[in-house]
Design a binder for these strands. Structure first.
Lengths: 155, 155
DNA sequence: GTCGGTGCAAATGCTTTGCATTGAT
DNA sequence: ATCAATGCAAAGCATTTGCACCGAC
């Protein structure tokens, strides 16, 4: 198979590929859509990703690996993966959308060092509680959130 | 002057126009830039805005009011206003940047009803505390943040 | 066999840029 | 007078779309 042996998430990825593929197929069927080899390849490429990635970069890497897909299909499939709840979009800047695998993971948030543009992920259960509380006050049920903190190194 | 008499923020805006204009001029001088009538007009238009706005929309409204500025100048000036700390960019989607006046205001966050695309602002001091705590854990000093919660109406 | 999917190239829409002219200092 | 700012139109880029052909069901 196609996982990079240098990355450490192989065992996790291996255990999650099959179920996610099934989940995606179920999602597609439910919506009258088809499971194609291109969609399978894109899902596979997405699952190898750790953290944030961009559509163009995914396209480039798939081409390097000789997995030919068109740009249009990448974008169309990423959209379906978002709807299926397998990945999510993150808007860190106005240049392009970032995506991240989220299925079965805790909702992650980001800490950006604006001096170095370094991005760290963090998970905060307190933030989830606070989110619930704020939604309650407005009569909403939380479906998701995006939190980005911008900071600089402590003096 | 040019404030819309139907909006309720007149008194606030009136008290803040002069100082903000001075702040912007100081910022420009400090950076070897010039204070032009176009920049004055754009600052004025921005100060009339409540909540979020977009560059194109600002351009459109200024043209309606017969305040002629080019699109290029709008974009160039918004960038300076961000650097000057008078407004900030908010990335809600990948279509376009949103801006918001922030000078002297509490940092606002957003609650999006994904069914209606309605956006509410909220301010949460607890979120600020939590932000501090998270930054402390990572050796950073918080400089700002963006929080967007997505939700649907409670069943 | 029926739709939906794909690739391609063209189109879109926000944002930026090059350049000649104008204007602030 | 100098050097940045402006307007315009063209360029850039990420993303979307139209269309003819292909392939999953």
């Amino acid at each position: 198979m196609s996982h990079d042996p240098t990355q450490t998430a192989d065992s996790e990825a291996d255990t999650i590929v099959a179920p996610l593929c099934a989940i995606f197929r179920r999602f597609l069927k439910r919506h009258g859509l088809k499971f194609t080899s291109e969609r399978a390849m894109i899902l596979d490429a997405v699952l190898e990703k750790e953290g944030l990635f961009e559509a163009e970069q995914l396209l480039y890497e798939m081409r390097q690996a000789d997995h030919r897909v068109s740009k249009a299909t990448i974008y169309r499939t990423l959209k379906h993966l978002v709807e299926a709840g397998i990945i999510r979009e993150v808007f860190l800047d106005s240049k392009q959308a970032h995506y991240q695998m989220t299925y079965g993971r805790k909702p992650m948030d980001y800490l950006v060092n604006t001096e170095t543009d370094e991005v760290k992920e963090f998970y905060s259960p307190e933030l989830i509680e606070l989110r619930q509380k704020i939604c309650d006050q407005h009569g909403l049920d939380p479906m998701g959130h995006r939190m980005v903190i911008y900071g600089i190194k402590k003096a």
